[in-house]
Design a protein around this nucleic acid. Structure first.
Lengths: 119, 119
DNA sequence: CAGCATCCATCATGATACTG
DNA sequence: CAGTATCATGATGGATGCTG
């Protein structure tokens, strides 16, 4: 059974994708891709996120090696988040996904209209 | 405004990705990519899915034009699900994602170990 | 066979308040 | 500034039973 380039889709792989492709992680990676940002910068860039969700997303991304957390022990501590090499490799795929949505959205919307009409 | 390959990541795009990249949809598309399958076939191929979740995933995928639902009005009705052209275009990206997980999983696991040790 | 309806547990999310 | 802690709640997921 040789599947050329065909995936495995085991629990491990799915779990990893779940951890880095969720709603907030996508936007965090997208934001950090341009330049490192601090916690409250991220809150501003991703306007509707709560601290709790943002903290959770950042911890998950950090744990999976997608972002680095850099603490500067100045007076009020400054914490900077920056994307890692691993994170960048993921971002390329996310870009491909976004490109795909851009290209296929019209067809998807037609499909939705058809479905909603008929059903 | 021409952004070569750069994404927008609007709510619409994120919503579409959420609808087709969820846990079960990935596995459904993966299964249907090889050949069309019937409802209970899918339940066997994706062993741990409940019919509720499978139904929901299939409806979502159908609504978004990723799979076709083909009803054969035989005696006990036969319902076949098959992937569409749109679905296949998505599957290519999913394959790329799975390839990415395969390649990066070792590094991710090292990152996790480091994180879990330290914290 | 291919679902739908219902109930229930769990979880993710949000709002709010507090801290080093 | 960059969080943590707590409570409330709404969405999800599973188990079960029923139907054309």
């Amino acid at each position: 059974m040789q599947e050329t380039g065909s995936p495995k889709l085991t629990e491990q792989h799915r779990e990893l994708l779940d951890q880095v492709l969720d709603k907030w992680s996508l936007q965090v990676l997208d934001a950090l891709c341009e330049r490192p940002l601090r916690f409250n910068d991220l809150r501003r860039v991703i306007p509707v996120v709560t601290q709790k969700s943002l903290t959770a997303a950042l911890r998950r991304l950090e744990r999976n090696g997608m972002v680095e957390r850099i603490v500067t022990s100045t007076r009020p501590v400054a914490v900077e988040y920056r994307i890692t090499q691993l994170g960048r490799s993921l971002q390329e795929l996310i870009d491909a996904l976004l490109h795909w949505t851009t290209v296929t959205l019209p067809a998807v919307e037609r499909a939705r209209a058809r479905f909603d009409d008929h059903a």
